[in-house]
Design a protein around this nucleic acid. Structure first.
Lengths: 230, 230
DNA sequence: CGGGATATTGACTCTTATCAATGCCCGTGG
DNA sequence: CCACGGGCATTGATAAGAGTCAATATCCCG
């Protein structure tokens, strides 16, 4: 199953990312060659990109859409460690096997690269592997900050911080469009969906935000939101 | 102030770490040259290795002792993101400035290396920068697992997991010597020190552990502890 | 042996989780 | 075009787990 679509797109993630992407989008097919040119893939809403314990041969660049990286406990408790958005690189692991799973939050377009191919290219170029190190260190720092958020902040502070993060990442601090449902936000913040909903209500009653449907947040008082979200 | 001690030691952290260390231990002195040979440093209990917002020019190899990496909120709430022990490399940051602070939990010996010097050497050797990438990815994975722990597990599970981690890292699963006080354990697990103390008591009453003073834990039922700590 | 830091234990409070009912939005099909 | 239905989201009532405050107890270290 390899349905080519008519969409063609050129994409460059970061200055030193070694390959540009200029491809026809195809449905996922993990068996194709993923050399330096990369494999384009499309994923439907809520479809799995990879699962825990799968072999970890590919890394991914998000072209469009949103991806959640998560880990499940046997009894179903879930923690989302990150949301990956356009321009983000994800899916690198220190071992041969995945320790997390990744799913598309909305219809998502990715380009996959073979890890080994990138490393081989990096041996020659040098710049790329340093870039990858830099991206990984930034991911580490973000996760450490998330640890502080979840370990030491209360529900209102966590939700405020989340809205600020999303506003910053989407580049629009005034109107934040949330791609993910309350349940995903809750699992990202270590809360329940009911508590997330109550905190949205509280932020609204404080005059910090306004809700336009569940997925669109208008920020009315950025000062106050920043004070809460540190 | 540069007091040389009589202690001399040879240390090799990992197969591909590019430099071996064979030095006389000195008190910290950040101004000395930190070329490939590295600067040995000693830190007293609870002394600061570096603080938030300091320039981030050095990375460190733990030779002996334990280091806590932590982040503070303005009101004093603290989250410890990691404990670093003998053989661990820490202190690499994506920016020029520290986003965390590091302190010695017990009297600690480190070797510091100039980041720039290592990168320059890595450009030639190649292997070192890949090793650094690998170490960073492992740190990322550990922090992501900590996120699941703090975001989704209860107090008893967190303390059980902590004891398992310490047992594994010190290489003795039967008797776990804890270098850090309850307060540090609490800040690592996103709990209060009282709750940590109560969970130790609960594990004791469940027959999973036995306490020999506050800092020494004898594991009586590894099965049960593993079941709790997942 | 004494004293200060660290740890334990207890009583009570408070935040957040849980369980349950209702409401809203949006796409679909009559 | 409107009614229906299903997935999400909100809101409410209550419970449970961890936090807070406070009073000992214990362990080191000099």
């Amino acid at each position: 199953m390899l349905t080519q679509t008519a969409v063609s797109q050129s994409f460059q993630s970061r200055p030193s990312f070694p390959f540009s992407v200029d491809v026809d989008w195809a449905l996922p097919d993990r068996e194709r060659d993923a050399g330096p040119a990369g494999i384009p893939m499309s994923f439907a809403r809520n479809s799995e990109i990879y699962g825990e314990a799968e072999p970890a041969g590919l890394i991914y660049l998000v072209v469009a859409g949103v991806v959640r990286a998560s880990k499940l406990l046997p009894d179903g408790r879930r923690q989302i460690s990150a949301f990956h958005m356009a321009g983000d690189l994800f899916g690198f692991e220190p071992d041969e096997v995945r320790h997390f799973s990744a799913e598309a939050v909305v219809p998502t377009k990715l380009v996959a690269f073979k890890w080994q191919g990138l490393i081989a290219a990096g041996v020659r170029s040098g710049a790329f592997i340093r870039e990858l190190l830099h991206v990984t260190m930034k991911g580490l720092r973000h996760t450490q900050e998330q640890l502080l958020l979840i370990g030491r902040k209360n529900a209102l502070e966590r939700v405020a911080a989340f809205l600020l993060e999303m506003g910053n990442r989407t580049g629009n601090r005034g109107v934040v469009e949330l791609a993910m449902p309350r349940h995903d936000i809750a699992d990202y913040l270590g809360l329940t969906l009911e508590t997330v909903s109550r905190m949205f209500a509280e932020l609204r009653s404080l005059g910090a935000i306004e809700l336009d449907g569940a997925r669109c947040v208008r920020v009315l008082d950025l000062e106050q939101l920043t004070a809460l979200g540190s």
